[in-house]
Design a protein around this nucleic acid. Sequence first.
DNA 1: ATAAGGCCCTGACCGC
DNA 2: TGCGGTCAGGGCCTTA
Length: 277
Amino acid sequence: MPELPEVETYVQELAPLLRGRQVLEAAVTWPRTIALPDAENFVAQMAGQRFADFSRRGKYMLLGLESGLTLIVHLRMTGHLLVVADDVAVAVHTHVVMRLDNRQKLLFQDARKFGRLWLVADPAPILAELGPEPFAADFNLDYLAARLHGRSAPIKALLLDQSLVAGVGNIYADEALFRAGIHPQRAAGSLDAAEIATLHAAIQEVLMLGIAKAGSSLGGSSLQNYSRPGGAPGGFQEEFKVFRRTNQPCPQCGAPITRIVVAQRGTHFCPHCQPSA
DNA sequence: ATAAGGCCCTGACCGC
DNA sequence: TGCGGTCAGGGCCTTA
């Protein structure tokens, strides 16, 4: 599941491939992929659009078009965007094809069909519920403390809440909590000031490390399902400390990593380094 | 308002 | 080998 680091890398790698390119025609084969407008209007409106600028907000990719419209893409679990030559056979799970003006085509593939595309004049309503970017000034200790104050939900659940901080998903939530030495089931409101500060730093650090890895030409990315926009597979086994390392030794103390379920999500932690209370 | 659970999907995996 | 069942999970929706 692509999270902020992978989406950031995606955007950076897509930009040079798409900037200035015009969409000659679009086709949609799984209409539910298109969140806005409906698939028919999406196809009609995408024709002739030219890609201009590229950015990211949380896990959303924002592909700005010269017309002023924005193509928003959320990969969710298994979505991929890739640019291939026009004559490449379209693989299974390809739900959107956009033929470009340079004998290439932009594909959206998604085995699980959770990913979504929007074509809108104003991205703001789509992004309205997102919290601050993890590296922005408004994601600070005062903010985090205020948002955690009084909350009984497990801290892991709040880290997954995109309105608290945008872009953290299941992988980096587990990694941040491990780095901070905080048990994922701790009631969010029970964290003291020192723990909040440690967690705040840990969130930024694991995301930064993720970006460095996802962006490095050798390291590839984190995820089995993640592949580069050009189509080459990203590296699969990431050096995560705890994520999906059930029963493997903790890199800090050697205790076996434990897997539990928190907020309906598989959750991995070290019971020794992340004591429950 | 908050918390918890279901839902969408299908490839991977497991046990028989 | 084949087959049925279970699991994974981001964001959205419903329920309490």
